[in-house]
Amino acid sequence: MKKSKAFWVYLALALVIYAVVQVMTANEMIDLYYQNMLITICINIMLAVSLHIVIGITGQFSIGHAGFMAVGAYVSAICTMKLGLPFIVGIIMAGVVAAIAGLLVGVPSLRLKGDYLAIATLGFAEIIRITFLNIDYVGGAAGMVVNHMTTWTYAFLGVLITILVISNFTNSRHGRSCLAIREDEIAADAMGINTTYYKVVAFVIGSLFAGVAGALYAHNFYIIQPTAFNFLKSFEILIYVVLGGLGSLSGSVIAAIFLTTVSQYLQAFPETRMIIYSVVLILVMLYRPTGLMGTKELKDVFRLKKRGGSEA
């Protein structure tokens, strides 16, 4: 059972990271700036991995992911700020409502292929954003004031659960069905896979975790505004997935960590940030067109190294 061994190694590693950050925070070794940065990294990992299941695993080119994040952000903010519900209820509601939105968008649009699907999902995300922009109940363009409630623990658990659910899904007959769709939809259909069903399932799971990420995002700053969920945000998430390597979960995690860190340091120079982003993307497309990791996972890389070593 090699797989479960890798699983325990990862879990142990994750818990160590969690404990170290937690202890350092308690001892004031990590200031608010870095705490915030760590939480942002977690949120972006969740966004990347939740899009990875749609694009990397199922091969459906959806580029409106920020739309589902927006749904989660606003739904959770309404729960906590307007209805006075506990944060955890807000998070769950964010996931549920974003999943329902994913279902409603996915059923008609996943019949479309390639460019058409991309346009439809992008259009949906814009509609969501403009809807929130025009609802006074949630503050319109001025935005909605939200209390700071997202802690390192919430963010860490969010990432852990997202990765666990999505990798468990992927490594099962259900995930393989999605991979089959990515590889060859006609053959998948001919082998007995209900392709529409699995495309929608992947889309709904992706939307759910984007919604949860949105909830954590909303409660990490003091205000949410519709502009935070515009198409640039969708592209940013898309870049994590493409840069990491379509089909590689660890790739999208690594890309999310890397790009979030870079862009945090460049926050003061937004133009430079976009230039660096573009340069990185162009370099990757030139020298590693399949992304940093291709379709490989971290554990494959290590296994290959080990094998190579013993042969040498």
Binding site: R173, R176, S177, L179, A180, E183, D184, M191, G192
Partner: peptide
């Protein structure tokens, strides 16, 4: 399913 393993190719057909 070109980029999947030989075993996964067969498992996918076994899925249903």
């Amino acid at each position: 399913f070109k980029d999947l393993t030989v075993l996964d190719n067969v498992k996918i057909a076994n899925h249903h």
